[in-house]
Design a binder for these strands. Sequence first.
DNA 1: TATAATTCGGACAAAAACCTCTTTAAGGAA
DNA 2: TTCCTTAAAGAGGTTTTTGTCCGAATTATA
Lengths: 152, 152
Amino acid sequence: MVLSRTSQYAVQALIYIATQAPGEPVLNRDIADRLNVPAAYLAKILQSLCKHGLLDSFRGRLGGFCLRDGMQKTSLMQVLLLTEGPDFTKSCILGLKECTDETACPMHFKWKPVKNKIIAMMNDMHLEDLAKAVQTGKYRLADLPAAAMPAA
Amino acid sequence: MVLSRTSQYAVQALIYIATQAPGEPVLNRDIADRLNVPAAYLAKILQSLCKHGLLDSFRGRLGGFCLRDGMQKTSLMQVLLLTEGPDFTKSCILGLKECTDETACPMHFKWKPVKNKIIAMMNDMHLEDLAKAVQTGKYRLADLPAAAMPAA
DNA sequence: TATAATTCGGACAAAAACCTCTTTAAGGAA
DNA sequence: TTCCTTAAAGAGGTTTTTGTCCGAATTATA
């Protein structure tokens, strides 16, 4: 409804890494297993987050990914601007290239405050806080594995 | 950010048809020209809206599409449930299959009220009203054609 | 040094979304 | 009837997103 799979995987992975001991690299494979997400695809996403400065990566034994120093405070908006592109906040809900208060589509003035709520929400959530929430055990980062699901 | 192209085209077309004299079929070609949207693709979308009972279609001379009787009051939510699928309102922003108050992802309780605003908004907007808004001339259903754009 | 573990980079594959083309069927008008 | 106009239907193409695979580079450790 709102985020691409790529964005969802990126956010999940970043939160997961943020729950782990800082400075201790986390294996791509471990993240993928934990989130139940395709490992090779996740690796591409993590590589891209490295290039954009959110993560550090280390090769070889004891390698893996960890949050770059200071990036615990990254907001989800910062992440989404990378994964969804810089126009993430600018889009018209009907897809018009130009849709401003002056040149508005018929949904513009209803949509605008809602969109602003989404933006505020994404600006307001930080990896740090989300990681802490997960650490309380009250929230899930991924679906339960099929093995733990009630038989169908 | 929120709606597929297909949904955008469907909503635009429905609003446009609702601005036209009721009972007078509108040509697919005219809608496509007006909205600056691929005609053959739009035709598929309109066909599907016919099958779902929102539109009536007529073949041959004086043919075209018009809103089915009573469908002026259709809400955008009704349209989107067809074009985005029945899970449109149910999705977790992180993509979890199960994400309820009891089994929540770490964004759930921030996202839920925002999502509810989107749903309320879509339930609250009806073709009739959007068509009237367009008829005032204050709102645009489509981008201006390139010919009308300032030279680059 | 050799080995195993890991990310990196590029090419490739599959699926979904988006879009086109062609033929057929139907309906109105000359 | 014949012609023109229109939507219907189905096959197929393109692009984007999602996902896989493999070889190369890098690193700790035995």
